Amino acid sequence: MKVWKDRALLEHYLHIHRIESVFHEQIVPHLSLYGFDRGELVCSQGDPSQYLYVLVKGKVKVYTTSAEGKTLILSFKTPLEVVGDIEYVQGTDILNTIEAVSSVVMIGVHHRWLKKYAKDYPPLLQFLLRIITQKFAVKSNSLSFNLMYPVEVRLASYLLSVSFDESGSLFTEEPSAIHLMDTANLIGTSYRHLNRVIRQFCKEGLIERHKGCILVKDREGLSALANHNIYEK
Rank of each mutant, 00 (worst) to 15 (best):
H15G: 13
I16G: 01
I16P: 02
I16L: 00
I16F: 08
H17R: 04
R18K: 15
R18G: 11
R18Q: 15
E20M: 10
S21Y: 05
F23T: 07
F23H: 03
F23P: 00
F23A: 10
E25S: 07
Q26V: 05
Q26N: 15
I27S: 14
I27C: 13
V28Q: 12
P29A: 01
P29M: 05
H30V: 04
L31R: 11
Y34L: 14
Y34R: 15
G35F: 07
F36P: 03
F36M: 01
D37G: 13
R38P: 00
E40H: 01
V42Q: 11
V42L: 10
C43W: 09
S44L: 14
Q45D: 09
G46R: 03
P48G: 09
Q50C: 11
Y51S: 04
L52D: 02
Y53K: 02
Y53A: 02
V54T: 11
L55G: 00
L55A: 06
L55I: 05
V56S: 01
V56E: 03
K57M: 12
G58L: 00
G58D: 06
G58K: 11
K59A: 08
V60Y: 04
Y63C: 08
Y63A: 08
T65F: 04
S66E: 00
S66P: 13
A67F: 14
A67M: 12
A67D: 14
E68R: 10
G69M: 07
K70S: 01
L72F: 07
L72E: 09
S75Y: 10
F76D: 07
F76H: 08
K77L: 11
E81N: 14
G84H: 11
D85P: 03
D85W: 08
I86Q: 13
V89A: 14
G91P: 07
G91Q: 13
G91V: 09
T92W: 06
T92Y: 03
D93Q: 12
D93E: 12
E99H: 05
A100F: 09
V101Q: 06
V101H: 10
V101M: 01
S103F: 09
V104W: 01
M106P: 00
I107L: 10
I107N: 04
H110P: 05
H110S: 11
H110N: 03
W113D: 13
W113M: 13
L114H: 11
L114F: 01
K116A: 14
K116R: 11
